[in-house]
C-alpha cells in the first residue's frame, strides 16, 4: 500500500486521506435532514388543522428549508476543491437566518 487513495490521474491533487471534505458535506446533509423534521411537523399542523396562520407558517418553514438546502448545496460545491476555503457569509448568516425563521414558524404554531 502506498499512501492514501488516489483518485483520477497523476495530475489530480491527492485528496485528504482523512476524508475531511466528505465528512463535512455529509454534516451539511445531516443538517438539512434535521431541518426537514421541523418543516414536516409544521406541515402536519397545516394539514391536520388548517388555519390561515398555520398554512402561512408551514409555507415559511418550507421556504427556510429550501434556503438551507441551497446554502448547503453551494457549500458542498465549494468543498469539492482540493483545498476548500472557510465558510462565507452565505453559510454563517444564511444558516442562522434559516434556523431563526423556523423558530418563528414554531412560535406561530403556538398561537
Amino acid at each position: 500500500m502506498t499512501g492514501g487513495p488516489t483518485v483520477g490521474g497523476p495530475d489530480e491533487p491527492v485528496r485528504d486521506p482523512g476524508a475531511q471534505p466528505e465528512r463535512t458535506w455529509l454534516a451539511w446533509r445531516r443538517t438539512t435532514l434535521s431541518c426537514a423534521v421541523s418543516v414536516a411537523l409544521a406541515a402536519r399542523v397545516a394539514l391536520a388543522e388548517p388555519s390561515g396562520l398555520a398554512v402561512v407558517a408551514a409555507g415559511l418553514g418550507a421556504l427556510a428549508w429550501v434556503g438551507l438546502l441551497v446554502t448547503a448545496h453551494r457549500r458542498i460545491g465549494a468543498l469539492a476543491q482540493a483545498r476548500p476555503g472557510t465558510m462565507g457569509a452565505a453559510q454563517t448568516a444564511g444558516t442562522l437566518l434559516c434556523v431563526l425563521v423556523l423558530i418563528g414558524v414554531g412560535g406561530m404554531m403556538l398561537v
Binding site: 475531511q20 463535512t24 445531516r30 443538517t31 434535521s34 423534521v37 476548500p84 476555503g85 465558510m87
Partner: peptide, 27 residues
C-alpha cells in the same frame, strides 16, 4: 484547511442541536 473543516462540522452539530430543539418545541 482540515482544522477549519472540523470547526465547520462543530458549527453544524450545534445548528442541528438548535434544529432538534425547534422540532421538540413544535412537537
Amino acid at each position: 484547511y482540515r482544522f477549519s473543516l472540523a470547526n465547520e462540522r462543530t458549527f453544524l452539530a450545534w445548528i442541528r442541536t438548535a434544529l432538534a430543539l425547534v422540532a421538540g418545541g413544535i412537537a
